[in-house]
Amino acid sequence: MSKVDTSKARPQPSVVEEVDRLVVVPRRNYGIWIGTAFTLVLSYFILRAFAVNPAFGWETAAGYLFHPSIMSGLMTTLVLTVVIMFLAIIIGTIVAVMRVSPSPVLRSFAGAYVWFFRGVPALIQLIFWFNLALLVREFSLTLPFVGEIFSIRTNDFMTPFFSAVVALSLCEAGYMAEIIRAGIKSVPTGQSEAASALGMPYRNILKRIVLPQAMRFVVPPTGNEAINLLKLTSLVTFIAVDDLFYSAQSIYARTFETIPLLIVVAVWYLAVVSIMSVGQHFLERHFGRSETRSQSLTTRFLRNAFGTRAKGAAT
């Protein structure tokens, strides 16, 4: 270490020694203590209001947690979520591709689709499809010269479950279309230009170049949508699909144990969402992008557990 001496007085070693004798006393932050105490007291009273009040019947809730009809309701909710998500992704992809197509007709149709299905409350869409029988008595396929080859009464196939699937798939597809379109838009245009320079047809460019790359931007928000959809399916209760919420309602309609059963429902939703967040966490890690939603306690817990850290000031 070549330190060149200047005319300035160099440190006498004693100064540093003198300094090293000093003990740093950290500041006591009374504000933080008061804040902590206040929050704890407040949380205590809130929790106590819930825990001690007999109306909340935690034991009753615990008793119903694995009740067979609750279980089958949960199953319905999960099946609905999976089926609707699957259909919504397919329809959403088609609509998204239409939205970026060169044809103005297709583009406006897709735009109207997204506007309509995202603009109308899901509850109304559900009720509408459920009441379809009032509007259209039967569906029939009639060919000229051949006559009617196929006819079915609306009431026969528009079961509550089926109308729920139709209504929510169409609705969710509106949201998925926007996500997929954003994904397509975020693939640099140079990619498709390069592909057309190679003589690839439009269809192939979309299928083989653009969509695969868009996946990276599509998957993380799709995880969020799946969680939103899970919660959205609770609305099917109002068209008498026996999902989780409906099952709970039909129990408390008999026993009047309203609050305990609502607790059961909330607990199951929280549990399923937490499990889905775990999956989403790994998807996000895999695709290397984080979404605004994240940062729930679950993901924070996961971050700590798996040692992946949010970007921070690590200077």
Binding site: A55, F56, I227, K231, L232, S234, L235, T237, F245, T258, I259, L262, I263, V265, A266, Y269, L270, V273, S274, S296
Partner: peptide
């Protein structure tokens, strides 16, 4: 509140 359906929360408040 983000992770449970609004309808469940609403009923919870309404009856709770």
């Amino acid at each position: 509140f983000r992770n449970t359906p609004f309808i469940v929360q609403l009923f919870f408040f309404f009856y709770g």
